[in-house]
Simulated assay, not measured.
Amino acid sequence: MTSHDARPSGCTPFEEELVNVLKNYADSADTPAFDAPGIVRRTRRRRNAGIAAVAAVLILGGGGTALATSVAGGSHSTPSRSTEAENHDAATVLYGIDADSGRPFPIDFHGWDLRGFKAYMSKMQTKLGTVSERPVTGCKPGSVIAVSPHTPKVVKSGDTISVVLCAGGR
């Protein structure tokens, strides 16, 4: 046979050898192993970590104010409805301007301890004024019962806020 004669298979020896090598390679390759339960666990772990990170940002960013207020103020006895509303108004601060509504947003400090109050004030970039105590029945000693200035005055960064703490029952 010469190079000009037709091949019975229609392929050159190089092409036949290439096809054989590729067949051997395809037959020898192992199928990939997938660890489906491990992939699901990693995905859930990442999703839970992401949710925890978002929750932490919301709490540190002020979205957890209602949660912190309910936790801090949850141990005192419940006064009458009108007294409770008055106490909360006296301990509520209107701060800054909300970007969505264009109005200041309220922060209710009623029932917070002094350490949490100071930490939140530093985040708001406000200064702590005088700290005084007043004997009031039905509140947890050391918890915030009033702030000055309070609602309806608006507080901005750099302003000074004074606080009145509960000294316990009379």
Rank of each mutant, 00 (worst) to 15 (best):
Y95P: 02
V54I: 04
K127N: 12
S82E: 01
A49Q: 03
T126V: 13
P104V: 09
T130C: 15
A119I: 10
A119K: 13
A68M: 14
D100K: 05
P106E: 14
S77R: 05
G116Q: 11
G73M: 00
S101D: 02
S80Q: 09
A85H: 00
L67R: 10
F105L: 07
S132T: 12
A91Q: 00
D113T: 04
Y95I: 08
G63D: 02
D98P: 12
K118P: 09
H88N: 10
G61A: 00
R47S: 14
H88Q: 13
A56H: 01
H110T: 03
V131K: 15
P79Y: 00
A49F: 07
T126D: 04
I59M: 14
G96P: 03
T83F: 06
F117L: 11
G73I: 00
S82Y: 02
V93W: 07
V57D: 05
G116F: 08
Y95K: 06
L67M: 15
I107Y: 07
A91S: 04
A68C: 15
P104S: 10
G102I: 11
G116C: 05
A55Q: 14
H88K: 02
T78L: 00
A72R: 06
I59K: 03
S80L: 01
F117E: 03
V57N: 08
G50Y: 02
V54P: 07
T83S: 01
L60N: 01
G73A: 00
A52H: 02
D108K: 06
V131C: 13
S122I: 11
G111S: 03
S80H: 05
A49H: 11
G73T: 00
G62N: 04
A68R: 13
I97T: 14
Q125Y: 14
K127V: 09
D108A: 02
S101Q: 09
V93R: 08
E84M: 05
S70K: 07
